[in-house]
């Protein structure tokens, strides 16, 4: 707790800042978030700019690491947890599944990469097809990244490799689907 780089700026804590970032990525307006926090734009914009400089000057990466963890806990923020994006019932279901079912998470991660390779905005594609916002997706990604770290820490490389392969396989499947939609890939006529 002694790192002064983690001290609040104008009373805006790193948890506040990370939560606002996550919520904004889920489409919640800055205005609503700041109102719930009881601050005005001028205060927030200074704090946000200074949080970025704190990350820049921090040689230990502590600020950015803690930011990432808080980003994943945005839904537990005492003052801002009530602000949720409008999602369909299906979207909420998918989000729950994303949190608990790693196969589903890896599948969508692979699909998102494939989407970018075929000219889609991957974040928008996930929103259109699964009703999950970018902010929510990234928050869940923090969770699975922690699980992955733990597996690596326990030298469970077989498991780590399993998930890498699974994601790649799903990415390839979605790539095939996207290719079919646009009438194939440039090398399709070439046969071995």
């Amino acid at each position: 707790m002694s790192n002064p780089l983690l001290d609040p700026i104008h009373g805006v804590s790193l948890y506040d800042y990370a939560t606002i970032s996550a919520k904004m990525a889920s489409g919640i307006s800055q205005e609503d978030l700041l109102k719930a926090l009881g601050i005005e734009n001028a205060v927030y914009e200074e704090a946000a700019a200074l949080w970025v400089t704190r990350m820049q000057e921090d040689q230990t990466f502590e600020v950015i690491t803690v930011f990432g963890q808080y980003f994943g806990e945005a839904d537990n923020h005492p003052k801002l947890s009530g602000l949720k994006p409008q999602t369909s019932a299906e979207g909420s279901q998918n989000l729950e599944k994303l949190k608990t079912d790693r196969h589903f998470y890896e599948e969508l991660s692979g699909a998102r990469i494939a989407a970018y390779e075929y000219g889609y905005d991957g974040a928008q594609w996930i929103l259109d097809n699964y009703g999950i916002t970018l902010g929510d997706f990234q928050a869940v990604a923090v969770h699975w990244s922690n699980v992955n770290q733990a597996e690596m820490g326990a030298d469970n490389y077989e498991k780590v490799q399993y998930w890498v392969n699974y994601q790649q396989q799903k990415q390839a499947e979605y790539a095939q689907k996207f290719a079919a939609e646009q009438g194939g890939n440039i090398g399709d006529d070439v046969e071995f």
């Binding site: 609040p8 700026i9 104008h10 009373g11 805006v12 926090l37 009881g38 601050i39 005005e40 001028a42 205060v43 200074e46 704090a47 700019a49 200074l50």
Partner: peptide, 11 residues
């Protein structure tokens, strides 16, 4: 404002 201001950029 529900916060205590510290030394920021202009505020």
């Amino acid at each position: 404002l529900s916060v205590t201001l510290t030394d920021g950029i202009n505020i």
